[in-house]
Design a protein around this nucleic acid. Structure first.
Lengths: 209, 209
DNA sequence: TATCATTAATCAATCGCTTGATTAATTTTG
DNA sequence: CAAAATTAATCAAGCGATTGATTAATGATA
C-alpha cells in the first residue's frame, strides 16, 4: 500500500531525526538508524538515496509549513509591525521549543564549517526565515514604528540565539533556570510562557519608540 | 629539545582545535588533523594517547585561566551595576569572539547529550561565569538600579546566545550581516564594536528604569 | 674527549573494524 | 505473472590505532 509505505518512511524519518540530533550527522551511522527503526539498512538508500538524502528529508519535512506561517504574518495588513513581531515570537516559541530535537540538529550541522551542498541547502532554507523576520523589522522602521537606529540583524540573532542557547544546552540552562526544561510538562507550562513574555518585553523596550 | 617538543605539541593542539571545531569530533579524522598539522599520524597517539585524549588536551589547555576575569568586575565598588554590565559586555565580546573557534567546540560538545566527565567539567566552568553575571544583575535589581521585573536568567541567555548565534554559524550570519565575520580584520573593526554597541543598547533599554 | 648505551621522536606500513553504498536473491503485493 | 518491497551478503574506502624499524638526542662511561 501507498499508505503503509508513507507511514514507514515517516517512521524512519522520526527515528532518524532523533538519532541524528543525539549523535550528529557523522556520529549517526546508517546501521544505528536502521537498527533503531527496525528496518533493513538498505531501505534507507532505497527510500532516500543516501545518508545525506535521509538527512535532507528529515530537515525538509520539518521546514515545510513553517515558511507559509511566516508569510501569513508578514502579509497581514490589519496588524501593526509590533503586533506581527509579537505573533512571530509566539509562533516561533511554540514551534521551535517543542521541536528542540530538530533544532539542535540544525544548529550542530550549521556550526560546522564544511561547505557541502547539504549545508548550503540548509543554510538557504533557514535564511529564508531569517530574512522574513528581518523584513518585518525593517518595515517597522520604515513606517516609523520602530526606532530608526534598530540593528535588525542583531535583533534576529538575539531572537534565535536566546532560544538556541536555552534549548541546545538543556543540562546547563536547567540548572540556571531552576527547573528541568527537558520535562515536557514543565516546558509547556513554565518555559514557553516565560520565553514569550521575556522576548516580547525585551524587544518591546528595544524596538518601540 | 624540550622547547621544540612543547612547541610541536602546541602546534598540534592549535590545528586540532581548529579542525575539531570545523568538523566536530566525529567528523575530524586523525588523518585530517595530522595532515593539516604536518605531522605523522602516529604522533597524535604518541603524544596524546588517543583521539579523545587529544580532544581533552585541546579543551584542557583553554580552560585553565578562564576563571578570574569576571571577579575583578564584580568586586569593584566604584562602579554602578550598569557600568559593570557594560564592562562585562566589553570583556566578554573581546574575549570570546576572538576565541570563537574554541567556543564553537565547547557548545558543540555541550549540545550532545552524552553525560561524560568532560562535558560535566565544561558545564561547571561555564556555569561559574554565568552565575557571576546573574549575581551582577540581581545586585542591580536589589539596589533599585534595574527594573524589578527583570528576568535575570533569560538576560544571560540572551547575552551568551546572541553571541553564540553569530559566531557559531559564521557562514550564515556573514550573509545576514553583510560582511565576513571570519575575516579577522573585519571582526575586529566592524563586528566587535557593533556587537558591543548593540548589546549595551539592548540591555540598557530592558534593564534600566 | 671519544665511544657506547639509552631514550625520545618520527616514520611507513598495516592491522582489525566500521562506514555508506550496492548487489543479487527473495518475498510481498496488486 | 510482473512490479515493488525487502533481505542478507558483499564491496571499496576510510576509520583509529598499533607495529617494528629508523633516526636524532641525551646520558654514561672510561
Amino acid at each position: 500500500m501507498d499508505k503503509d509505505k508513507i507511514d514507514k518512511k515517516d517512521h524512519i524519518l522520526d527515528v532518524a531525526e532523533r538519532v541524528f540530533s543525539d549523535h550528529g550527522f557523522d556520529g549517526a551511522s546508517t546501521r544505528l538508524i536502521s537498527g533503531e527503526a527496525g528496518v533493513n539498512m538498505a531501505m534507507l538508500n532505497y527510500y532516500f538515496g543516501s545518508k545525506e538524502g535521509l538527512f535532507l528529508a528529515v530537515i525538509g519535512r520539518k521546514i515545510s509549513g513553517f515558511k507559509d506561517i511566516l508569510q501569513n504574518i508578514t502579509a497581514a495588513d490589519n496588524m501593526s509591525q509590533w503586533e506581527k513581531v509579537e505573533k512571530y515570537i509566539d509562533i516561533y516559541s511554540e514551534k521551535i521549543v517543542s521541536n528542540n530535537c530538530f533544532q539542535k540538529l540544525l544548529y550542530q550541522e550549521m556550526g560546522m564549517n564544511r561547505r557541502t551542498e547539504l549545508a548550503d541547502n540548509i543554510r538557504n532554507i533557514l535564511m529564508q526565515n531569517v530574512l522574513e523576520l528581518r523584513k518585518m523589522l525593517q518595515d517597522g522602521i520604515d513606517k516609523g514604528e520602530f526606532k530608526p537606529d534598530t540593528d535588525t540583524d542583531m535583533v534576529t540573532a538575539t531572537l534565535y540565539g536566546t532560544k538556541n542557547y536555552v534549548v541546545n544546552m538543556p543540562l546547563m540552562t536547567s540548572t540556571l533556570l531552576g527547573y528541568d526544561i527537558q520535562d515536557d510538562k514543565i516546558l509547556e507550562e513554565k518555559f514557553k510562557p516565560r520565553m514569550k513574555a521575556y522576548m516580547k518585553n525585551l524587544l518591546k523596550c528595544y524596538l518601540l519608540n
